[in-house]
Write a protein that binds this DNA or RNA. Structure first.
Length: 241
DNA sequence: GCTAGGGTAATGGCATGGTG
DNA sequence: CACCATGCCATTACCCTAGC
């Protein structure tokens, strides 16, 4: 009800480590401002679904062919917020419940840590997209009107994210089975038929070989891909494999 | 002018503490 | 005893500066 005793215990521990830490207080940032916006000054790569992923310009070269399992960052906090909104739209719940929901939905692939979720919820509350109802010392979050609008505005994005989650979940499952030695890799790509997998691989290869293509050539390719995308979205029924 | 290295900032996860 | 919330620490990526 009215138990407000955070930040009491923190001092002792923080004091200890503080000596060797050349850093300064980042912690106050979270609940003070809510959340740090903008990644960095001129950050080039950033807002993708898999976001400023683990592989950027640093060590490790280019790793993810888009698939493979990024062990580090999975989703941007932007995307996380959208997912939270979507979940809350279905049913108001506590922060912990949301974590578990995400975890379940992705077959354990994506279980955002508390340190990520709670600040996100706090932020959403601050911008008025969710409302908080304190029940004892738990907080029940619910979607607000503004949140509903935000969700509607980004419906497409949300669907994409969840689709990706489902896709990964299936893949996860098949990998698990592979480890168990049950089935080889019949559906290793998450339920895609071999023809599709092969086609996608061929496409990647073709693109890689043209990594140095001049601008005109790149535009031509872009047009082709755009056309393909349109066609895919246009007639989802008959697979032209 | 280009490449390499170092430094700074941000994100994600883990650990601790508290309450029902 | 189990579950939830908060805070701190560690790791990773990006940008800037120095040297060749």
């Amino acid at each position: 009800m009215r138990h407000h005793n955070h930040h009491q215990h923190a001092h002792s521990r923080w004091h200890n480590h503080r000596a060797l830490a050349g850093r300064f207080s980042l912690h106050s940032l979270w609940h003070a401002i809510g959340r740090h916006h903008h990644r960095r000054g001129g950050g080039a790569s950033g807002a993708g679904p898999f976001g400023g992923g683990p592989f950027g310009g640093g060590p490790g070269g280019f790793g993810g062919e888009g698939d493979g399992f990024p062990r580090g960052r999975k989703f941007t906090s932007d995307d996380l917020q959208l997912m939270l909104l979507a979940l809350l739209a279905e049913q108001p719940s506590h922060g912990y419940e949301l974590i578990r929901a995400l975890d379940a939905r992705s077959n354990g692939f994506y279980s955002p840590s508390p340190g990520m979720v709670y600040p996100a919820l706090t932020y959403l509350e601050e911008v008025g997209q969710v409302t908080v109802e304190v029940e004892g010392n738990r907080k029940r979050y619910a979607l607000s009107e503004a949140g509903r609008e935000q969700l509607t505005a980004n419906r497409e994005r949300v669907d994409l994210i969840f689709a990706k989650l489902t896709h990964i979940a299936r893949k996860m499952d098949s990998v698990r089975r592979a480890f168990a030695g049950e089935e080889p890799a019949d559906v290793s790509e998450g339920g895609w038929v071999p023809e599709l997998i092969e086609a996608r691989r061929a496409l990647k290869r073709a693109l890689l070989l043209r990594t140095d293509a001049p601008a005109d050539e790149q535009r031509r390719i872009a047009a082709i891909l755009a056309r393909a995308t349109a066609e895919i979205e246009g007639k989802t029924s008959t697979a032209s494999v």
